Simulated scan of single mutants.
Amino acid sequence: MSNIGFSLIIPTLNAGSSFELLLQSINKQNVVPKQIIVIDSESDDDTANIARKYGCNVIPINRRDFNHGATRQFGAEYTDVDVVVFLTQDIILADENSLEKIIDCFHDPAVGAAYGRQLPHKNALPIGAHARLFNYPPDSRVKTLDNAQELGIKATFISNSFAAYRKAALKEVGGFPDNVILSEDTYVAAKMLLAGWKVYYCAEAQVYHSHNYSVWQEFRRYFDIGVFHGREHWIRTAFGQAEGEGFRYVVSELKYLWANGKCFIPKACLQNLCKFLGYKLGLKEKVLPLWLKKKMSMNKRYWDSWK
C-alpha cells in the first residue's frame, strides 16, 4: 500500500445526482486521502451539502472567479501533501484500487504527473465511447521529452478529470496558469516534459467518464481548444501541430462506428467538420469581435477578463 500523502481536489458547479456516486466511490478506496477538497462555484443545487455529508472540506468561491487553471492552483496550494489528485464532478472511480494505482506512479521520483484511464459511462453513445477508447488505451506508458518526436502533441495529453501531480514538480514549472480558457492540464504537462519530468499514463487506474456532446457543443469546445493553442503557441512549437492527431482520430472513429453504430456515421462526419472549423476559428480568435467569441465559446465567463 502506498505511503505517499495525497489530497483530492474537486471543483464543482451544480454537480447533480451523480456527484454522490463519485463520493461513494471515493469512500470505497483502499487508500485514504488526507483531505477531500471541494471548491464550489456557488452551486444552486445540493452539491455543497452532499459534499459536507461525506466529510469533504467545502471551499465556496464566486462563480465569476472560477478559472480552470487558477482554481486548481488554489486547491493545490491549500493542502500540505506530496501529491494532489484532481477529479471532475462527473466521474466515478471504477474500483477500489483506482486511487492507489495512480498514487503508486509517484514512487518513481522522476514522475511529475500521472493520469488514469477513462472508460465510457454505461449510457455513452458510440461517438462518446470511441473518444474514451481512442484517447485512453489499455496499456500504460511513461512519456518523456524523448517521446516528443514519436508522439508529437499527444505527448502533452493528460486530463484533469482524473490526474495527479507531484507538488514539488508543479511548483518547479510555475503551477497551473492563472487565466486559461481550458487545457490547464496540457499546459502543465508540456512544462513538465520540457523541464525533464516524466508524465505517467496509468491504464490500471480507472474511472468512468464520458460525454454525449451535441454537434454545437463540440464546435464550441474545439473553438476553446483552438483559443488555448493560439494563445499558448509555444506548445505547438515544441511538440508539433494537432491536425495530424485529429486525422488519426477520424479514421479510428469511422472504423469503430462501422462496427458499432453505422447510424452515427453521418453525425460523426458533421461533428468532425464542426470540430475542425471551431479549432481553426479559435486559433484566429484575435481577429474576431468579442461578442462573437462569447457566442462560440463554451467558457463564456473567460472573455470577461480577456479582451
Score class of each variant (00 low, 15 high):
A155S: 15
A155H: 00
F157A: 10
F157D: 12
I158A: 10
I158C: 09
S159P: 01
S159V: 13
N160I: 03
N160W: 02
N160R: 01
S161K: 02
S161V: 10
S161I: 07
S161P: 03
F162S: 04
F162H: 05
F162V: 04
F162E: 01
A163H: 04
A163Q: 10
A164M: 03
Y165D: 02
R166L: 06
R166W: 04
K167C: 07
K167S: 02
K167L: 15
A168L: 08
A168C: 09
A168N: 11
A169S: 12
L170F: 03
K171A: 15
K171T: 15
K171L: 05
K171W: 05
E172R: 11
E172H: 09
V173I: 08
G174H: 02
G175A: 03
G175E: 03
P177V: 05
N179D: 09
V180Q: 07
V180G: 07
I181G: 02
I181Y: 07
I181C: 07
L182V: 11
L182S: 12
L182G: 12
S183Y: 14
S183G: 00
S183W: 06
E184C: 09
E184Y: 07
D185I: 08
D185N: 08
D185K: 08
T186R: 09
Y187L: 09
V188N: 04
V188Y: 09
A189M: 05
K191D: 00
K191W: 00
M192S: 02
M192V: 04
M192L: 14
L194Q: 14
L194C: 05
L194H: 00
A195V: 06
A195G: 01
G196F: 06
W197H: 13
K198N: 11
V199Q: 05
V199W: 06
Y200S: 11
Y200V: 07
Y200W: 14
Y200P: 13
Y201V: 13
C202Q: 15
C202D: 14
C202A: 15
C202G: 11
A203T: 09
A203F: 10
A203C: 11
E204A: 15
E204Y: 10
V207K: 00
V207Y: 01
Y208F: 15
H209C: 13
H209R: 10
H211N: 13
H211I: 07
H211R: 13
H211Y: 14
H211L: 12
V215N: 06
W216E: 14
W216Q: 12
W216H: 06
Q217T: 03
Q217G: 08
Q217L: 00
E218Q: 11
E218V: 15
E218L: 06
E218C: 12
F219N: 00
F219M: 00
F219H: 03
R220Y: 01
R220Q: 15
R221E: 03
R221H: 10
R221T: 14
Y222D: 14
Y222I: 01
Y222Q: 08
F223E: 01
F223R: 00
F223Y: 14
F223N: 01
I225L: 08
I225K: 13
G226V: 06
V227K: 00
G230P: 10
G230D: 10
R231V: 10
R231Q: 11
R231E: 14
R231K: 10
R231H: 13
R231A: 08
E232Y: 13
E232K: 04
H233P: 04
